[in-house]
Design a binder for these strands. Structure first.
Lengths: 143, 143
DNA sequence: TTCAATGCAAAGCATTTGCATCCAA
DNA sequence: TTGGATGCAAATGCTTTGCATTGAA
């Protein structure tokens, strides 16, 4: 568990004259202490379990800051809520999402990057980002 | 504009002994009368504009039926609401989404299908579906 | 000290549900 | 006639906002 992200968040806050509060640091610690894709609700549970409860509004506001700082990514896998992940050192990756247990497996593929360029060019489109998600069952959930 | 979909919906309703109501037909007419990806809200506006207002609950319930009938597809492009499209004759296709004007361009690609299989196999994953969306600016919205 | 952050509760939105009324078959 | 459909309004569930209080700098 690398806490480099927490430090970068502190630098960001200082650079913009935003107070460095314990709540902000705790949210960042949780996010940068896991590779999982967690929801705002789950972050709240974890912090409560740590004995450091936080208002949900503060969680959402801190997530906004982390997004603006470019330190995390936001996902919507169609569960009815959003999930967040520490921004990976390898910036572009895609997801395999198990529809039974909710597990998320990451992968990266140069082929996808190439495909994005090819397809966009074909349609005179100027791509900025893409998302590829494969839904199905992970090994454990498959019969 | 093909209204074949409306007929298929009627067949479906009769097959399951569900009443064929004017509201259901109107929702189907709007969906099968366009290639656009419309929201429940937009369907309501269009029907109001036609002088045939419908309760939003009825729209959502009718969309459920159309989904169960397999006649439409549901999408979430992260706008905060879902959009629906008449199910294409070509079952699998992906989307280019303009982040400025909201336009959606469809495309299909065998390469994507192959990629899904390859990647899933690599991770011992059993895929059932995928989604690939490329976000950026369409030709008109690009400087 | 002071301005922004926090946290509660209330508000917002898209969507779903309860229920009295209505209507397709 | 009658069971299911409709449509309003209320309820949900996630997220955002208002505002009095708190706290970082």
């Amino acid at each position: 568990m690398t806490l480099e992200g927490v430090e970068r968040f502190q630098e960001y806050l200082r650079a913009y004259n935003h107070p460095v509060t314990p709540q902000r640091l705790r949210v960042a610690e949780e996010l940068f202490g896991t590779h999982l894709h967690v929801s705002a609700e789950e972050l709240g549970e974890k912090l409560r379990a740590r004995g450091e409860p936080i208002g949900k509004a503060t969680i959402y506001r801190t997530l906004d800051l982390l997004l603006k700082a470019g330190l995390i990514r936001e996902h919507d896998f169609g569960d009815g809520f959003r999930r967040y992940e520490a921004r990976p050192s390898r910036p572009r990756h895609e997801h395999l999402v198990c529809t039974r247990c909710g597990k998320v497996i990451e992968f990266e593929s140069d082929a996808v990057e190439r495909l994005e360029q090819e397809i966009a060019a074909l349609h005179r489109f100027h791509p900025t980002r893409h998302r590829l998600e494969i839904y199905g069952l992970c090994e454990e959930c498959h019969d």
